[in-house]
């Protein structure tokens, strides 16, 4: 029993570097959220979502006035569907005698970075280690989120007009490293940019979607992202070897 508790501690310690990296990020996102009009308690639920890109989707739609919850959920689902893959490959790495509640607890606070770190360990991992490993980053993220939502009021008005770019800076910093690593990912980024300008340039598309009573921005975004990924996987499928190369660097 004592040994197993040490496993949690060891995991928690291993996760601290990720926690430190998360803290300022969640803080920046929370600042943007409060500036966009979320109150303190909304911002806390927002942080529990615990997904930088998913929260970005929320902010992007929210600022455009999208009211349909289904649009948010759909885009979030598409953007984070990779967790299904993470979870599938994790399920083969967890010790078979791990209780279900430990798997569940680890699962709900798993992230890309935690996944990568966990997969670098040799052999099967105990549920307690994984819970510890996932827990410290989660704590860091929540701490940053709460701090961010509290300090927003202190930000001077003169800086506010340019703060909108902060979130895009985060996104750019998430995309560029994998685009640098793989020419295929870079191509998919370029394809997405082209598609998104094409859709933007055809006003009839936006008008048609608006006439259905839906905000066109969200539909355009999903269409771009999904079709760019589909086109690229069709023309340039990613080989098994490249897959592990890209994942390692993330």
């Amino acid at each position: 029993m004592i040994e197993k508790n040490n496993d949690f501690k060891r995991g928690f310690k291993d996760g601290i570097p990720i926690a430190l990296a998360y803290l300022p990020i969640s803080m920046a996102i929370a600042v943007d959220a409060v500036l966009s009009g979320l109150n303190f308690s909304m911002a806390q639920i927002f942080g529990i979502m615990y997904t930088g890109s998913g929260q970005g989707i929320f902010l992007n739609y929210f600022k455009k006035g999208e009211t349909l919850a289904l649009m948010y959920v759909f885009m979030l689902f598409i953007a984070n569907f990779r967790y299904v893959i993470f979870s599938i490959s994790m399920s083969q790495k967890i010790k078979s005698d791990t209780p279900t509640w430990q798997k569940l607890l680890f699962g709900v606070i798993n992230t890309d970075e935690v996944y990568v770190l966990a997969m670098q360990n040799q052999g099967a991992l105990s549920g307690k280690y994984l819970m510890g490993l996932a827990f410290s980053p989660f704590l860091g993220y929540i701490l940053g989120n709460t701090t961010g939502s509290l300090v927003t009021g202190l930000i001077p008005d003169i800086v506010k007009p340019v703060l909108g770019i902060m979130l895009y800076g985060l996104f750019i910093a998430m995309v560029i490293p994998s685009a640098k690593k793989s020419r295929k990912i870079l191509s998919s980024v370029v394809v997405t940019i082209i598609l998104s300008y094409i859709l933007e340039a055809i006003p009839i598309i936006g008008k048609t979607i608006s006439s259905w009573g839906i905000n066109p921005a969200g539909i355009t975004m999903i269409t771009c992202a999904v079709s760019a990924a589909a086109i690229c996987s069709w023309i340039a499928p990613i080989e098994e070897k490249e897959l592990s190369d890209i994942k390692e660097e993330e």
Partner: peptide, 28 residues
Amino acid sequence: KFLKSFFTYIPGTVLTALIVPEVFSSTS
């Protein structure tokens, strides 16, 4: 293979679709 590739591409394309073209109207 197609699905595997698709899920590898999707995080990057989603982020890019979020950035462009909105980023250029995110400041004054």
